[in-house]
Simulated assay, not measured.
Amino acid sequence: MTQYPAPRLLYEQDNFPVFQNRMYDSADEAQNCPRGNIRIVEDQTSGLVRNDAFDPALVDYDANYQNEQANSTPFREHLEWAADLILDHMGTENLVEVGCGKGTFLEMLDARGAAITGFDPTYEGTNPLIQKHYFGPELGLAADGMVLRHVLEHIPDPYAFLCQLRDANGGGGLIYIEVPCFDWICEGRCWFDIFYEHVNYFRLSDFDKMFGNVVASGRCFGGQYLYVIGDLASLRAPRFDPENAIDFPDDFTASLQGGTAGSILWGGASKGVIYALLQGRAGAPVEAVIDINPGKQGRYLAGTGLRVSAPQEVLANLPATAQIMIMNPNYSDEIRKMSNNAFTYVEVGND
């Protein structure tokens, strides 16, 4: 029997919401949401980083999952940039998006003249370009280009999944992959960017290990995301390289010790959920949460049960001395403009 080296533990937390983007109708329901544990490890065989405590049986996406970011101008600009990159490298013919969510990005590509089909079993809209099931070999499709945005970090075995996509696509084709950047998380000590539903955490070097032919790659969205265009025909099993081991910071959660009670958070998505959760555990509970997504407003965050408010609900009653914690620095200019630059602002992870 083959003996594999034990993974190296990097970071752990207990009792995290399974879905940080699932919204709840009451504080009580949100506080009693499904929970799981975090045990982030570096695999000593593949070199990949994963949550070793992840239990896929806990994960069941439904209509209450709210991860729409396209309400924000900076994020729309990022999507436009990604669309340009994809069409420049893949053309406009015979494209497939796997895990297309609510279809925002697919519809953007369609509006640019791309012939594209989306696949997502959780899709609830009516766009005929989107099929409400998984992409598989039984469909008999062979796309020239595939799009996989913010899906791979949710998959328990990412290399095996990419191999399945390769096989389902006739053994090849280009694929655009976009995932969060683990180096960005480590560099900024962004403990609020570790989530239960993200099984994997990637570095650019991981994709160099998995693809023999990388057509384009880099960091985007202010360095927070990685993008890769790889040739599926060149897939190979990743191998641990001791010269490229994770340099995980010893002071990763140091900023938790300096938290201030009564913070106003702008951003009720993933970062805000975990920031509020761990700040509360550290004795510095959050007072209010603002988000411009109408799908979140009036509903409650997993774990803490904090209510999400529209900007005007909170800002109207804030003193000029109030401090607003901006959960994503990419949105700083937009937030300052929406609030008339009337308060003190802290860019979380950039301060």
Rank of each mutant, 00 (worst) to 15 (best):
Ala261Lys: 02
Gly283Val: 05
Met327Leu: 11
Gln323Met: 15
Arg76His: 09
Ala57Glu: 03
Gly267Pro: 12
Cys220Gln: 12
Gln13Val: 06
Phe192Ser: 03
Ser263Asn: 09
Asp157His: 06
Asn330Leu: 08
Met1Phe: 12
Thr2Ala: 15
Thr126Phe: 12
Asp14Trp: 15
Ser270Asn: 14
Phe119Pro: 10
Thr126Ala: 14
Gly258Gln: 12
Asp291Gln: 07
Gln3Ile: 11
Pro34Glu: 01
Trp81Cys: 14
Leu109Val: 06
Ala237Leu: 14
Val49Leu: 03
Pro156Tyr: 00
Gly280Arg: 02
Leu162Pro: 12
Tyr24Ala: 08
Phe248Trp: 07
Tyr331Phe: 13
Phe211Asn: 09
Ile175Gln: 01
Asp241Trp: 11
Asp52Pro: 07
Gly262Glu: 10
Met327Glu: 06
Arg299Gln: 10
Leu95Tyr: 07
Ile116Val: 13
Pro294Ile: 04
Ala70Gly: 13
Val96Ile: 15
Val215Ile: 14
Thr45Tyr: 02
Pro294Cys: 06
Leu106Gln: 00
Asn169Tyr: 02
Ala70Cys: 12
Gly101Ser: 10
Pro329Met: 02
Ile335His: 03
Leu9Glu: 07
Asp88Ser: 09
Ala143Gly: 13
Glu197Gly: 04
Leu109Lys: 00
Gly349Glu: 09
Met108Ser: 07
Gly222Trp: 10
Ser263Trp: 08
Glu77Phe: 09
Ile185Pro: 05
Thr45Val: 13
Gln66Lys: 09
Ile38Glu: 09
Val199Met: 00
Arg149Met: 15
Met23Asn: 08
Asn64His: 08
Tyr123Gln: 05
Gln3Pro: 12
Asn341Pro: 12
Asp250Ser: 11
